[in-house]
């Protein structure tokens, strides 16, 4: 065998090897996706076809001789043979033209294909597969699924560690609420559909301390904020007293909330997070957009993940 062909084969094998390594050990991978397979096959075919076709002609440079009848004309001493068309080339040209015409007239005539139709089928198939498979996933699997959603959808704002990007831009999800938020909410009230309804929380002009019989004071706000942000743990603190006097009527004595009245502010709760994802939230930290493109399973899962963040400790 000629040395050139040997080289061609070596390069082709190297190409296949490199492809195998890239596809196999890189992120991504074929995933049984026909589109991926075609792309990789295309890349491999491209290299191999080009190499062997060119080798064929290089061989002719090495062993063949120029021949044929020269045309009469010459331009700046460049002559021209009257050779016939290379047969393989001519046949393939004809072949592709026939194929092209077939494609339009018989294969896929003008309106035979709809990319949106194809999309709808793909989506339906995807949904059917995963809905069935994961309809009942719960517990740690649900948290895992939630983490996968979190890493794609939420990191951009809440950061990889879910600490809210240094707390400049988004809420720190490793704690239920920050002191800043509590103060803000008590001062300004809140109306973010955290309960899924329009139910608002009044601002400080609507917050009476049952113990003192007066509106909540600046000092009390500071105290209660520290208490709530601390996870309502320090039950002997001044804040705890304020909480019992002002907040517990709605949020419950333990801060775990009451259905239809006020949300859980002691721990993360599934419905609260889902409500935030459905409606977004505008608070003192900033604006959290509604995450409309997640489906309900994904919302449930990511909520489970967020809840898991504070349960580890």
């Amino acid at each position: 065998m000629n040395k050139l062909y040997l080289w061609g084969i070596i390069i082709a094998i190297a190409m296949l090897g490199a492809t195998y390594v890239t596809v196999g050990y890189q992120k991504g991978g074929l995933n049984g996706d026909i589109v991926n397979m075609l792309a990789v096959a295309g890349a491999v075919a491209l290299v191999i076809i080009t190499i062997f076709v060119v080798i064929k002609y290089v061989r002719q440079m090495q062993v063949d001789q120029a021949s044929g009848e020269l045309a009469d004309e010459s331009w700046d001493n460049i002559g021209e043979y009257k050779n016939e068309l290379p047969m393989g080339w001519a046949l393939m040209f004809l072949g592709t033209m026939v194929w092209g015409m077939w494609y339009f007239l018989a294969g896929y005539p003008v309106n035979a294909y709809s990319q949106i139709g194809e999309y709808n089928e793909d989506v339906a198939a995807h949904d059917a597969k995963f809905e069935k498979e994961y309809a009942s996933i719960t517990g740690s699997r649900l948290v895992e699924m939630g983490e996968s959603v979190y890493l794609v959808e939420c990191v951009a704002c809440h950061g990889l560690n879910a600490d809210g990007n240094n707390e400049v831009d988004a809420a720190d999800l490793n704690a239920r609420v920050s002191e800043k938020t509590v103060k803000y909410v008590v001062n300004h009230g809140s109306n973010n559909k955290l309960l899924g309804t329009e139910m608002p929380m009044p601002d400080r002009n609507g917050l009476f301390n049952a113990e003192t019989g007066a509106l909540i004071t600046d000092k009390e706000i500071d105290e209660v904020a520290a208490f709530v942000a601390g996870g309502l743990k320090d039950t002997n603190s001044a804040g705890a007293k304020v909480f019992a006097g002002v907040c517990s009527s709605c949020h419950g004595p333990d801060g775990k909330g009451m259905e239809y009245v006020a949300p859980d502010i002691a721990t993360w709760s599934q419905p609260l997070i889902v409500n935030v994802l459905n409606n977004g939230k505008v608070g003192t930290i900033g604006k959290m957009p509604a995450m409309d493109r997640l489906n309900s399973k994904q919302k449930e899962a990511v909520a489970a993940y967020v809840i898991s963040l504070t349960q580890g400790e």
């Binding site: 890239t22 596809v23 991504g28 589109v35 995963f130 895992e144 890493l151 794609v152």
Partner: peptide, 26 residues
């Protein structure tokens, strides 16, 4: 080539849960 095909595959990839496997920055 490697960059393009890798990126293209990553964009398309869904994980075992049927969610996108990679964020854009990945």
């Amino acid at each position: 080539w490697i960059a393009g095909i890798t990126q293209g595959m990553m964009w398309r990839a869904h994980d075992e849960f049927g969610n996108l496997a990679y964020s854009f920055i990945d």
